[in-house]
Design a protein around this nucleic acid. Structure first.
Lengths: 295, 295
DNA sequence: CGGCGTTTGCTAACGGCGTTCACTAAAGCG
DNA sequence: CGCTTTAGTGAACGCCGTTAGCAAACGCCG
């Protein structure tokens, strides 16, 4: 009984519930010195063991292949057995690295948030840093651009959680999503500090909404410590519109009614930015030849 | 060879590709009179055979149980075997009624669109017919209300198609979705004819966008034959915002940052309606005690 | 270098899934 | 009643996630 429990603790140890396992093994398996499992604990992480390195590489390969399957066959097409097969392994072997298919999906979701954040940040960095207007325009376009070129990823990140069991721990993905959001918060903060647009009247914010917006601001850690709730409301509204138009495009809900969704996105973008007092520039001439059918 | 083909034609005949089957069987199985498969074809559909009645009932039961499983266990929890088990049947038996799990999901999705349309229409009919403002307000609130009380359904209807194979024929669901959309189109038409709000300048509509919007209007069959594209743009923008705020709530993307999404919805609703020149009324006093956690 | 605990990956197995095929029993119709 | 059509079953195939037990490889330490 106790043996089985400690064994279970030893198994699903990586990446999910890491400190949890550290605590439990420390209490239950007193005979085994902890340095065994993580050598050179005090010497810093600069010197990973050879074992740790190859382990990290295997985990990366797992995630990479799972990601490929996600892109090629959709969320439902990711299976431990298929990943293992492609790696020349068997499915149970993967359980040394991931605690199950759900955890693997959460892992790659977190990675994808990081990747999206990097893509937006790269676009943001590609324009002059002091041109806030252009930075916002570029960042929002980069968001849509990444979404339409990574449809399967976007669906798992921003769609409903349809595959995961409800009790799955998705905090890694949520954390990554929060870091992604910070990209936009920073830009919005800049815009606020420049006082580019008048905040809406305070009486348009109901007490209930004010409470939720305050919680929003507190949780997300704006750089502005006491950001007015009216500003958070504007940000929320913009995010809702951006999310709506991009999701509708990626989820293909107007497919039978519109061929190319980019004009609608640009229209919404222009409307959003104008409302923020940010100047809008039409996209490059490549706008008419988008990913839509050339016909 | 030919036998196998005709057998395959005879099997997956119902509900999906109905006329297709009629045509094929008519050509391939000349020896069998068509009246056999559909008796009293000329006497009208008012007299369904006993067989047809029980068959319809069985199909309805299948869909009902599948729907229950969808609600209780999410999209991934719907399985032919489980449905059959609950019906006291075996899974292969269901193939007499549905051509596979994907077709079943499409079927119930179409049903759900119909149900949503009915719910919105019922709310719309519950207020004075000549009060366009109140009808719109009530209809949009009914949309959100249905969504948050039917989360699993909403996710399969408005989320990404994550379970279905890409080549699945989803036209039944798309058709039902179109009928649902007509509910809002009609109200919007009313609003337009009342000329309640000024249309935006035509130069805000790019030629590409105008083309897409025109296709949108044509496909959806507005009652106004030559509705201006500017109006379609306004409608699209409103729909994007509504879709965005409701989807974010149902998909729980701000869960870790907001407890109750209704205030944000009401805020967006007010903003949308104000932009349309429609008067906004705050919700009943039950607003603060919504479906959210009581604490 | 050998010894030995840790880590890794395997095989076998269980149960669940979608789907097909061959077949039986029932229902409807002349 | 006899014949055709239909409803439903059981067995089977190949997927899937997951667990348990076991053997080989690894790496550290004496």
């Amino acid at each position: 009984m106790l043996t089985a429990f400690t064994k279970a603790c030893r198994r699903y140890d990586v990446n999910i519930a890491d400190e949890d396992r550290g605590a439990r093994t420390g209490r239950l398996r007193r005979g085994v010195p902890q340095q065994m499992t993580k050598p050179q604990l005090d010497l810093g992480a600069a010197q990973p063991t050879r074992r740790e390195r190859v382990r990290e590489a295997t985990l990366a390969e797992i995630k990479q292949i799972a990601r490929n399957h996600l892109v090629e066959h959709g969320t439902g097409g990711v299976s431990l057995r298929a990943v293992a097969r492609e790696m020349g392994m068997t499915a149970p072997g993967l359980y040394r690295y991931v605690s199950g298919i759900d955890a693997l999906l959460v892992l790659i979701t977190a990675d994808m948030f990081q990747e999206l954040a990097d893509a937006v940040a790269a676009a943001d960095a590609s324009v002059p840093a002091d041109d806030t207007d252009l930075r916002i325009l570029t960042s929002l376009r980069a968001f849509r651009s990444w979404a339409v070129t990574h449809r399967a990823e976007f669906a798992t990140m921003f769609g409903p959680h349809v595959r995961l069991a409800p009790e799955t721990d998705i905090t890694p993905a949520v954390e990554a999503g929060r870091r992604f959001g910070a990209t936009f918060y920073t830009l919005f903060d800049r815009l606020l500090s420049e006082e580019r647009f008048p905040l809406p009247d305070g009486d348009r914010v109901s007490p209930q909404l004010a409470r939720e917006l305050r919680a929003f601001a507190d949780t997300c850690g704006f750089s502005a410590p006491h950001i007015p709730v009216e500003a958070v409301m504007v940000l929320s509204s913009c995010w809702v519109r951006l999310y709506g138009v991009v999701s509708m495009e990626v989820f293909e809900h107007l497919n039978f009614v519109m061929r190319d969704m980019e004009p609608l996105f640009e229209s919404e973008l222009r409307s959003i930015l104008t409302g923020l007092g940010v100047r809008y520039l039409p996209p490059e001439s490549s706008a008419s030849v988008t990913t839509g059918t050339p016909d």
